[in-house]
């Protein structure tokens, strides 16, 4: 049986699917001042599961937009077209479950190419294993 730790090295998604893995990666990102990227990624997943008929879903979309898409470490890594698409969607109040998908993909690619690679060689990871 494959150990959880060896799954972490398989992919970023395997790491994030494991509670200890996600927690350790979060600690690493806190140290790198990049934890917003991970919180945004989880917020997108959480948003996708929300019921669009509930009024609070629009409030969450607005909160994700304000907190991450407008101003944060996430914002500057998103394509301008992606940011304006989300802004327009909220302005028109025409939210849908997939409205953050493109932004989430851009941030996931960023983590896969940068922070995830750094994490796998970090002392925080090496000490854990």
């Amino acid at each position: 049986l494959e150990s959880p730790v060896s799954r972490w090295t398989r992919s970023l998604l395997s790491l994030l699917a494991d509670q200890d893995g996600a927690q350790l990666f979060r600690s690493f990102l806190e140290r790198e001042a990049a934890v917003d990227t991970l919180d945004f990624w989880f917020a997108c997943n959480g948003f996708r599961q929300m019921d669009l008929r509930e009024p609070k879903t629009l409030r969450v979309a607005k909160a994700i937009h304000k907190r991450y898409v407008e101003h944060s470490a996430v914002s500057r890594h998103l394509k301008p077209a992606t940011r304006s698409y989300i802004k327009d969607t909220i302005k028109k109040q025409q939210i849908d479950s997939a409205m953050f998908d493109q932004a989430q993909t851009e941030i996931q690619t960023l983590m896969e190419e940068n922070s995830y690679q750094m994490f796998l060689t970090s002392d925080i990871y090496l000490q854990y294993i």
Binding site: G46, F47, A63
Partner: peptide, 20 residues
Amino acid sequence: YDSEDDLLQKCISSAMPKKR
């Protein structure tokens, strides 16, 4: 009535992996 921050935190927590 939850604030926007509370709703956001709940949304993030709901997507976090659960204990094995």
